[in-house]
């Protein structure tokens, strides 16, 4: 049981010692459904814009019904030179999620939600503005698509350390480094690490496994598992980004392997880099913070940082991915 859970249990116990709990209907301010925009433009690709409507917090939790897709909005995209009208494509997006499928039965469910698109191609360096009109509501946003930056090189280093969790045993970890040129301005990046083969030694034992894909496995400015990072600590310098202390934390958010197989070998990593807009960095950070805090009574509530006017959501962009750099890590013990 996590410590926070212990503490929360304590709070409940204390309260029940003296409390007379009473359920009340809170008179909340009337909730007006907002338009919700999710639009991340990627250079070199067609736009994909998802428009939904928010629902009241206290409405029943039905995953299928609660995703209220708006399929009849008027969506226009302007690149400073021309205005493009986007149309609704029923099959544009397909999402899966864990949900109560039948009464009391939970499992994987999927939905085809659709979204707005156009045959136009997003170009790096251009500023796009979006306007969405629906039922008297208008939502707007603007983003400038960042330019692609290539990875110069990737390398690694085997680090030996004493892990207190394992009673101070001698342990090993790979420190993988990705090197790219960072312009002298405020920049934001998304590092994508795909792992074709995975094998490493940890605490005098070898752990082996095959990971199909680890998307966006990196650490952000707050040293957490954030997929997108800010360069505020290395702005203007030739930065070597370090996957530290190794992707083991990224795989399972603190997961430590319990299946130990004696197999010496090597790992293959494939790195690619996106430059992303500040809007995406801010919005995704706020999502991650809310996900971390929602079940923790000792963590401050976190609100979503919308980057659009007139509704909720994000209108942002990112560059095309850099050329892929392959790194082989040999476990040389």
């Amino acid at each position: 049981m996590k410590v926070n859970t212990y503490i929360f249990t304590l709070l409940i116990i204390l309260t029940t010692l003296v409390a007379c709990e009473q359920t009340i209907d809170l008179e909340l301010p009337a909730y007006e459904n907002d338009l919700v925009l999710y639009g991340v433009l990627i250079a070199g690709e067609q736009p994909q814009i998802v428009v939904t409507e928010s629902t009241g917090y206290f409405e029943p939790l039905n995953n299928r019904d609660r995703v209220k897709v708006i399929n009849n909005a008027q969506v226009t995209l302007n690149d400073g030179e021309a205005t493009y009208e986007l149309w609704f494509d029923d099959n544009m997006t397909n999402y899966t999620f864990y949900a109560e499928i039948q009464n009391g039965e939970w499992g994987r469910d999927s939905l085809s939600l659709g979204g707005y698109t156009n045959n136009m191609t997003i170009e790096a360096g251009k500023t796009y503005s979006i306007e969405i009109k629906h039922a008297g509501r208008t939502i707007t946003g603007e983003t400038t698509v960042p330019k692609k930056i290539n990875i110069n090189s990737a390398s690694y280093e085997i680090e030996e350390f004493n892990d207190p969790f394992y009673g101070g045993s001698t342990c090993y970890q790979d420190k993988k480094e990705v090197n790219f040129d960072d312009a002298d301005e405020e920049n934001f990046y998304q590092l994508v690490a795909n792992v074709d083969r995975w094998s490493f030694k940890y605490c005098d034992q070898f752990v082996d496994g095959t990971i199909i894909e680890i998307d966006s496995c990196s650490r952000g400015k707050n040293d957490r598992f954030y997929p997108i990072l800010s360069d505020e600590t290395f702005n203007g310098t030739n930065y070597t980004y370090q996957l530290y202390p190794g992707f083991i934390d990224c795989i399972g958010g603190g997961y430590r392997p319990d299946t130990l197989i004696e197999l010496r070998g090597y790992s293959i990593y494939k790195f690619a880099l996106h430059s992303v807009s500040k809007e995406l960095f801010d919005f995704n950070n706020s999502l991650a913070m809310q996900r971390n805090s929602e079940d923790n009574p000792f963590q401050e509530p976190s609100t979503i940082k919308s980057t659009v006017e007139g509704g909720v959501g994000v209108f942002a962009s990112k560059s095309a991915p850099s050329d892929t750099v392959v790194l082989r890590v040999d476990e040389l013990y």
Binding site: D34, V36, Y38, T52, S54, G56, Y57, E59, L287
Partner: peptide, 8 residues
């Protein structure tokens, strides 16, 4: 007060 769904 409300819930929003993000494809993220």
């Amino acid at each position: 007060v409300g819930r929003i769904w993000i494809p993220n």
